[in-house]
Nucleic acid binder design. Structure first.
Lengths: 157, 157
DNA sequence: ATAGTTGCAAACCGTTTGCAATTTA
DNA sequence: TAAATTGCAAACGGTTTGCAACTAT
């Protein structure tokens, strides 16, 4: 993780930004919660645990900065809140999401899956794809199982 | 178009809502701008041209209602604004979008394109897909053309 | 030294809501 | 006529911004 922070530090510097303690603290929170999809407020509260002096505005500014540098992706699942998702190092494309309409869980798909579709889009629509956002809405395996259990019980009776 | 309004009216009634003049005016604006991706404010201004008494809150309430009834889809391209997109009659799935990062244009793809991907998601992630959101970010054919011109001029880089 | 950065509070802006008046089925 | 709907204005909530003090390089 230190290495990753070091590399992001270089990225900041090469764009003539500084790695302040606040920015580093924010980055660490993002790295420690890589699987989650935190809102700015979420990040703020987590950073505050270790750096209580930090201000919400700074978190917003840091997240915006990291978004510009493509370190994080800003995503929006339709509730009025932006969420911030760490990009995998070296990833050229954004990963996909599965949003469960039962329990609200958000799972990630890191495989590409869209290669063929992008090819079609580039060819048929003459659209040069730079990135994509793909989210499926449906029922996750966890909710699916409990649903199955109910069925099984019913049948057993 | 009258037929379509008639059908939506029935849909409203069957959920015990009324088709008020304001709602009808809003619907007409949506039908007349089917290809666009209007924000609530956009819709409001357009409705106002023909029904100047209408209030912004009513437009919001109507759009929310139509979203509930699956007549429109509420979408979000990452700017802080919700946009409302008329669903094709009988469509089970949401269509896709191409957002140009040069000029901001939003084009639509009505083909499904995701059948194979959904099959994989259902099989490998045990996720029952109900709907999806797919947006490509990149350069549209219009900007692509002018970009080509620049490249030719600039040459190296 | 100085350009960049911070925290605070106020401003912003899209959206929602309470309410009294009005309208629809 | 009763329940639904409207317009208005005020409230809301996430995000941005102006500014004086501060800090990393």
């Amino acid at each position: 993780m230190e290495g990753r922070i070091e590399r992001i530090k270089k990225q900041l510097h090469s764009a003539s930004y500084k790695l302040t303690p606040q920015r580093e603290a924010t980055l660490r929170v993002l790295l420690e919660n890589e699987e989650d999809h935190l809102s700015a407020e979420d990040v703020y509260l987590l950073v505050k645990e270790k750096s209580p002096e930090i201000g919400l505005a700074t978190v917003y500014r840091t997240l915006e900065l990291l978004n510009e540098l493509n370190v994080v992706d800003k995503i929006n699942f339709g509730d009025g809140v932006s969420r911030y998702d760490l990009r995998q190092e070296g990833a050229t494309h954004f990963h996909h999401h599965l949003v469960c309409i039962e329990c609200g869980a958000v799972d990630e798909i890191k495989e590409d899956l869209l290669e063929d579709v992008e090819e079609i889009v580039e060819r048929d629509w003459k659209f040069k794809v730079k990135d994509h956002r793909l989210t499926f809405h449906g029922i996750c395996y966890r909710c699916h199982e409990s649903e199955d259990d109910k069925e099984t019980k019913k049948k057993a009776d």
